[in-house]
Nucleic acid binder design. Structure first.
Lengths: 216, 216
DNA sequence: CTTTAATTCAAACAAACGTTTAAATTAAAC
DNA sequence: GTTTAATTTAAACGTTTGTTTGAATTAAAG
């Protein structure tokens, strides 16, 4: 490998892409290294050579998408916060929620591979595997703290406990939406025609969660 | 075994209890038959002898709790529906949501073992394992249909598509709540004191989801 | 070209998985 | 008490799992 790394093989990327797809599709535990390396068309030992272990691979899969996404969400929330501070007013709840939710849903359309990852995010909190929950949690914790504090500023009339729980209800709605979009067929449950590009989903969920956060 | 079955061993029940606990804790795929039979203190072969397979065991674990719970939820929703019909008015959204949500959350306290199952429900829609999702889906489909139709009657001013999506947001909030309650430590994410018996949770979530369903 | 490092490869590892078997044990029926 | 059925048991089945190994191959450096 030379000093600028241009000749590095794309084995790592191919593994990351395959793992991302399969983790989203069948879960971390439900995906074997043989399935990953088979889909990526690389040797079985390549995962342990390049990543060390299946767990480290999981961490890299999450890190690759979540760091950029979280940077955007952080900037947007801080922007809402600073704008309100300049005007000497409290932040608007709807703006705060939009700052968090819109980048998340739009991320789904940022690339064809990113869509798989969004499905994976949707299961991250409730994943039966400890490792998955912990890694996701570690990456999202500071952002969630920022979201919480800003939401409290936006809703000073509500006790912090109440804001906390309603944020969790919001997270539940959003993550469930992330998970079902892309592989879900609503007709299976009840017959309703649905078109669901990211922008439409934003317009659907924002009024719901905003009303919920403001309630009473 | 005699004609009234009183002498039947409790092996099946012990397996069901252990499986319920472990499925809720580590997921279906993350739970081995050896872990189940070890916790139940029965022989490894007992699962295949009494249930035929791990998949049939899963189905029995779900059936045992979900049939009674669904019967209650169905009765409560139909009660709201019939009361409104008698008065010649549309059902109240809040009453409809309460009819579905309250029994679900109270079920958590119906017995010490039921709490584990509720955690399992909370992960049922997003479980990485196809089998888990399908079994749960099969049991809940008719009830969800009833909830959908009644919600549409309660919100005639909203298009059915909108009610459908908002019900999914509601399900997302509720199921996420079911999952995090019992093993979740909110302090891990952000420092907030929380007491959460079932009744308190009902009082927390109902205003949120009601406002969300009614929004605009 | 030669040397050296990085990567790929087929093969094997021990461990854990769900399931099956046949003998041993327990309980029921007569 | 004897016979018959139901249940439990220990052991093994064949797969699949994540990981490791050492040789073969490819690319980089001198």
């Amino acid at each position: 490998m030379n000093e600028n790394g241009r000749t590095q093989s794309d084995t790592k990327q191919r593994i990351l892409d395959a793992a991302e797809y399969l983790f989203a599709h069948d879960g971390y535990r439900g995906t074997s290294l043989r399935a990953i390396t088979g889909k990526a068309r690389v040797n079985l030992a390549a995962v342990n050579y390049h990543f060390g272990s299946k767990e480290t691979l999981l961490e890299e899969v999450i890190r690759r998408r979540l760091l950029p996404l979280n940077r955007i969400r952080k900037e947007r929330i801080e922007e809402v916060r600073e704008n309100a501070r300049k005007k000497g007013k409290k932040p608007d709840v709807k703006a705060v929620l939009l700052a968090f939710i819109e980048p998340t849903l739009l991320f789904k359309e940022s690339s064809s591979e990113a869509e798989n990852f969004v499905t994976f995010i949707g299961r991250s909190i409730t994943d039966p595997d400890d490792t998955v929950r912990q890694v996701f949690h570690r990456f999202i914790k500071p952002l969630f703290h920022l979201l919480f504090e800003t939401s409290c500023e936006a809703l000073p009339e509500h006790p912090k406990d109440l804001v906390f729980w309603r944020l969790h209800f919001t997270i539940g709605s959003l993550f469930h939406t992330l998970h079902i979009c892309g592989k879900f067929k609503p007709d299976d449950i009840v017959h309703v025609k649905t078109e669901m590009d990211a922008k439409t989903l934003v317009d659907l969920i924002i009024p719901y969660v905003t009303a919920g956060m403001r309630a009473k």
